[in-house]
Design a protein around this nucleic acid. Structure first.
Lengths: 121, 121, 121, 121
DNA sequence: GTGGTCTAGACCACC
DNA sequence: GTGGTCTAGACCACA
């Protein structure tokens, strides 16, 4: 996995884990990779993975069973989805619209690109 | 002007100046506020404004006339716009689409929000 | 290290680092001294070293690993060399020739001085 | 006339005037353009031209007749030439040789470029 | 430990 | 007046 330059690595890891929970790849109550495992896989310092897990624990997407590891929360996926949807509609979208206006890009252009995106996959 | 917590102030200033160039508020070949002026206006240290100007100079949006101050590049607005449009279409939009897919949000939802946004203004 | 009067210190530091990369003293992918270390060694403010490193990063001679330090770019030396060679041939040399003409100095004089230089070392 | 970015304008003007004296375009004891004339021609502030003239006066390449203007010194050309030749041999050339060594450029390459330069003109 | 940002204040060359 | 550089010192996020 390669990391973007300008975002903290632990946040990128958290997002990555979040994605796996959201898509159901890691189901509720299921154990996720140990800190060390993931650290080796991603070639980062274990502390950094730990920080990502702590972050997700604070958001109650995952929880810790002492001595066993981290597990996906019962309603993990739902929670993540609700949280991110909220943020998407309240923050990201308005920002997008502002940018569009500044760059004089119409909603039709977005639709066009969307079609391209969907067919291109 | 108020600054967001998580982004470097000098980058926010640069973005602000960039916007003014993009919208044509500051036309090509026109002088922009001096480092000291803007520093007073924004209530930050002159060094911070200086960093923002350096950044924009590197991107060739503005240039310096020795002893006179900073000026908007001849094709400043066009350049900024082309650069940002490119980035928007190549990077931000695909990312947006990926998020939409993940959150199961359709293009119709975007259109709906867009209408709300436009009428709300 | 002593600094010339008329050139910004941070540029002299950058040139110094560049030389070390060019000569292969600091090999590709190798860590270079931390900002603080070099600041102590050169007896300058850390900010000044930081500016030098920023400059070199912009030129893609070095890059930053978050939390770890600055590293020589993969093709750092090659890039520096190509860049400087280009500049030498395209800019410095023609300027030299113009000066020679103006001062009525022939190529033979250059050769003579070159011999002196090489033997004198 | 266009000015290089990184060198003080008044020094570039001085060099330009010096060239004219050196080549004999402006002969000894002959009047050179007035400060204002040159300022208009070069589109710079008269103060800047004045500074260049002061600089040349210090080097005794030109002198001032009060109320009349600036004149090329009796032995202006000779003086300029001697001064610049000295600097060329003592400073510029050794620097050049050092660069050549660093970039692994031999004297033969210089000769080759010189031939190209001379025939190209 | 690493870089990154910011402030305050100073001094300078240049136009 | 303009930018440009430098220092000292602080605080922060990140690995």
């Amino acid at each position: 996995m390669e990391f973007r330059e300008h975002e903290a690595i632990y946040l990128q890891i958290a997002a990555h884990v979040s994605d796996n929970i959201l898509t159901g790849k890691w189901a509720a109550e299921q154990k996720i990779p140990s800190v060390r495992e993931l650290a080796v896989e991603l070639q980062v310092n274990p502390n950094t993975v730990m920080r990502a897990y702590e972050f997700l624990q604070n958001q109650q997407e995952i929880y810790n069973k002492r001595g066993l590891g981290f597990y996906v929360s019962a309603n993990g996926a739902a929670q993540v989805k609700a949280y991110r949807k909220e943020r998407f509609l309240q923050q990201e979208l308005p920002e997008l619209f502002r940018t569009m206006q500044l760059l004089e890009i119409g909603i039709d252009e977005i639709e066009k690109q969307y079609t391209i995106y969907k067919t291109g996959k």
